[in-house]
């Protein structure tokens, strides 16, 4: 099994943690659990209470949303992705289901650890804000596109 150093390397490749000094990342890795999921196992389910976020160290996950027509695949995330951050940042239930596509290795970061890091490293807080803003930007774009599409359909 891979050691702490590999995990630190993975963490550094995630933009959110990029600006944090390596010693702290090692500490974060040390105090987090390494968790393996097998194919098809859920990391968490939409609507559950959130207590941790996951860094995907190896493998891929599907992010899914429950709709009236059944589950809808939003995106597939690969190695170095960071999932589950919304629920622990905003204290809301999980906004989507994340399921392992294949056998995956993750690093489970507890909510209170993550929040504490944000307080201690303003750079990280800025980074989180940036990432969230990017996501909002993308969501807004998508929404606009959807609206247009909708009005086309209705108009046409």
């Amino acid at each position: 099994m891979a050691g702490l150093q590999d995990e630190v390397d993975v963490l550094r490749r995630i933009s959110l943690f990029a600006n944090i000094e390596p010693a702290r990342l090692k500490l974060l890795a040390f105090t987090s659990d390494r968790v393996t999921f097998s194919a098809g196992q859920e990391l968490f389910h939409e609507g559950d209470a959130g207590d941790a976020a996951y860094v995907i160290i190896d493998g891929a996950v599907d992010v899914l949303k429950d709709t009236d027509d059944g589950e809808q695949l939003l995106v597939t995330l690969k190695k170095n992705a960071f999932v589950g951050d919304i629920a622990i940042l905003c204290d809301v239930p999980r906004t989507a289901t994340v399921r392992a596509v294949e056998r995956i290795e993750t690093l489970k970061i507890r909510k209170e650890h993550f929040l504490r890091l944000l307080i201690e490293f303003p750079e990280m807080a800025v980074e989180v804000t940036r990432v969230l803003a990017q996501r909002l930007q993308k969501t807004t774009d998508d929404l606009t596109a959807c609206r247009e599409e909708l009005s086309h359909t209705q108009g046409g």
Binding site: A23, K26, L27, F30, T31, S32, R110, E112, H113, R116
Partner: peptide, 17 residues
């Protein structure tokens, strides 16, 4: 000691130690 030095005693990371 290297990892934890400088952290206050009530830091949540200590719970994992």
């Amino acid at each position: 000691i290297e990892l934890f030095s400088g952290l206050p005693e009530d830091h949540p990371f200590f719970e994992q130690l």
